[in-house]
């Protein structure tokens, strides 16, 4: 596992049923592109998060395939619909096989 990977997610605590909520996610990751060279001229191997997947109560919200052109500390902002109270599950998949997960529950106001 890459060191110091910390997912941060901003989701409203409550919403009206059927409402649209804006979700902002940030995960700390160096996203080594595989293009850079170290001081000896050797290529630094690629090490990125290659997939980001969001579900709400098991239903798909968004599934993003990430390439090395995404910046360090990948940030994503998108909108989701909340049909009922439940939980958003966020999953990031690392090149090295690590999986980073976090979840946020939303109540119906």
């Amino acid at each position: 596992m890459a060191k110091g990977v910390k997912p941060r997610v901003k989701v409203p605590k409550s919403a009206a049923a059927g409402d649209t909520v804006t979700i902002k996610t940030l995960i700390s990751h160096k996203m080594e592109s595989g293009q850079r060279k170290d001081s000896d001229g050797a290529l630094i191997p690629r090490s990125i998060i290659n997939r980001f997947h969001v579900t709400f109560n098991g239903q798909d919200v968004i599934d993003v395939t990430i390439e090395p052109a995404v910046s360090t500390n990948p940030y994503f902002e998108f909108e989701a619909m909340v049909p009922e109270a439940g939980e958003f599950a966020f999953t990031w998949y690392d090149d090295d096989g690590s999986v980073y997960e976090t979840s946020k529950s939303v109540a119906i106001a």
Binding site: Q59, D60, V61, I62
Partner: peptide
């Protein structure tokens, strides 16, 4: 990006 049924 692929959008699922709950993408607003």
């Amino acid at each position: 990006a692929k959008f699922g049924p709950l993408a607003a």
